[in-house]
């Protein structure tokens, strides 16, 4: 008997196609309709906690199939930005748009703008996948149960149906063999891959990753990045807060440098990493490398 918990190398080989053929088809069709269409867009987003202004007017957009990496020192507002985009926090000012439609508020055009009630926010959130630094798997559910929960409780799928879909998704992230394991019985890398499957199974329009490898032991980072890179290759729209420069170079087509609640600089990975214009970006990138 081998140790059931750690077998990252073996698991890694099983990473297959992550996206539904149907979903890909849909995306290709949408792409030919308007190749420059923004899936997720933030404009002039402001957010403060008490007296601290964490976001001071952040604007950026992600096109369909694009992968955008967000860099920046801790406290620069990266995580807060992601939480606002995922509708986990209301913005104080500015707009968030998904597929061109303003989300998170009601009474959008002209009149008073108020946050949506939690019940309606929940609906909108289900179209945005979120992966957390600390995985946040539900400890009382198996890997399969974690992936099934959204399908059953949000999408209203039948248990048997959800079981089937969730199992396929776990196989795709290379964890078919681990479906009956509880989170406490999985390695960090395996837990994060379950968390990715949990978000992915909802067929989100965009996936947000909040430092997905920062809480992992170094030897487990690779298996999570491999899944994410596969996802990027298959055309998933992604926003990734990360310190993994190599990943950003390989998988991202845009890099955003944030500091003190604003976007300092935006460009291709090459522009940001090899010839950064901003002095602070330069220092930050040097420190990373």
């Amino acid at each position: 008997m081998t140790d059931p918990v750690s077998d990252p190398v073996h698991d890694q080989h099983k990473v297959g196609h992550l996206l539904d053929a149907a979903l890909l088809h849909e995306q290709v069709a949408a792409e030919s309709a308007g190749a420059t269409e923004l899936v997720l867009e933030a404009s002039e987003v402001h957010k403060r906690y008490g007296r601290t202004e964490v976001l001071r007017g952040v604007s950026f957009g992600v096109k369909r199939g694009d992968v955008k990496a967000i860099l920046g020192p801790s406290g620069s507002g990266k995580s807060t930005l992601l939480r606002c985009l995922a509708l986990l926090e209301p913005v104080d000012a500015g707009e968030v748009r998904l597929d061109g439609r303003r989300i998170g508020v009601k009474g959008a055009s002209g009149g008073m703008v108020t946050p949506l009630p939690e019940r309606l926010l929940a609906k909108q959130r289900s179209d945005i996948g979120m992966v957390f630094q600390r995985f946040n798997l539900f400890p009382h559910l198996t890997a399969l149960g974690n992936v099934m929960l959204g399908l059953v409780e949000v999408r209203g799928r039948k248990k048997a149906e959800a079981h089937e879909i969730a199992e396929q998704m776990l196989i795709r992230v290379g964890l078919g063999e681990r479906k009956q394991f509880y989170p406490s019985e999985l390695s960090g890398g395996q837990q994060q891959r379950v968390a990715i499957a949990r978000a992915l199974v909802m067929n989100p329009k965009v996936m947000l990753f909040d430092e997905p490898t920062s809480a992992l032991d170094p030897e487990l980072v690779g298996e999570v990045l491999a899944v994410m890179e596969e996802l990027a290759r298959e055309g998933m729209t992604m926003v990734v807060v990360t310190h993994e420069m190599e990943f950003a170079r390989r998988a991202a087509n845009g890099v955003l440098m944030m500091d003190a609640g604003v976007v300092l600089e935006e460009g291709t990975p090459d522009e940001i990493f090899t010839r950064p214009q901003n002095e602070r970006t330069k220092r930050f990138v040097e420190a990373l490398a």
Partner: peptide, 22 residues
């Protein structure tokens, strides 16, 4: 853990289900 509530909300669970299921 507060992360449990956040993860359940991010998934799109309605408030009552966040409490009862998670």
């Amino acid at each position: 853990d507060e992360g449990q509530r956040v993860a359940a909300r991010a998934l799109g669970l309605a408030p009552r289900k966040v409490f009862s299921r998670v």
